Lab assay of single mutants.
Amino acid sequence: QKPVSAYALFFRDTQAAIKGQNPNATFGEVSKIVASMWDSLGEEQKQVYKRKTEAAKKEYLKALAAYR
């Protein structure tokens, strides 16, 4: 399975908490809140997710090379 983006990892980590705080929110509303949070996130915090994405990408490429 291809690795997901840094934003997708952040979304996955954040979505449940947002939904818990806003139980009646639609998926679209939750998405807007998470997107706003991502935009206001500091670069250092974004780097945490970007590093996770890079590590997953390297593992994916290694597994793909081994498969071929």
Rank of each mutant, 00 (worst) to 15 (best):
N24R: 10
V34G: 04
D13A: 06
E43C: 08
K32E: 08
K58A: 12
K58W: 04
R51E: 15
K32C: 05
I18R: 01
Y60V: 10
A6V: 02
D39V: 06
N22Y: 09
E43T: 11
Q21W: 04
K57G: 09
A55P: 08
Y60H: 15
G28V: 09
E44Y: 00
G28Q: 08
A56P: 06
S5C: 10
P3K: 11
I18A: 02
E29H: 03
K62C: 05
S31P: 00
K57C: 06
A16W: 05
F10G: 00
P23G: 02
K19R: 09
F11E: 08
K32W: 03
K57N: 13
A6Q: 07
V4F: 08
K32F: 03
A35G: 09
Q21S: 11
N22W: 07
S36D: 11
A17K: 15
Q21T: 12
D13T: 06
I33W: 03
A6Y: 04
E54Q: 08
W38P: 00
V34L: 03
K62R: 12
V34F: 00
A6E: 15
S31Q: 10
E59I: 02
K46F: 00
E44K: 13
S5M: 04
Y7N: 12
A56L: 09
L61Y: 10
V30G: 00
N24I: 00
E29I: 01
S40I: 15
I33C: 05
L61A: 14
F11H: 05
E43L: 09
A35V: 01
V4D: 10
N22S: 03
S31Y: 08
A35P: 01
L41K: 00
A6K: 04
M37Y: 01
T14V: 08
A6H: 02
N22V: 08
N22T: 05
L41S: 02
S31H: 06
E54A: 10
E43N: 04
I33E: 09
N22F: 05
T26A: 06
K19H: 07
T53C: 10
L64P: 15
A25T: 04
E29V: 02
K58P: 09
R68F: 05
P23T: 00
L61I: 11
F27I: 10
K57T: 10
A8Y: 03
V30Y: 01
K52D: 04
W38M: 04
F27Q: 14
L64F: 06
V48G: 15
W38E: 02
D13K: 02
L9N: 01
G20C: 09
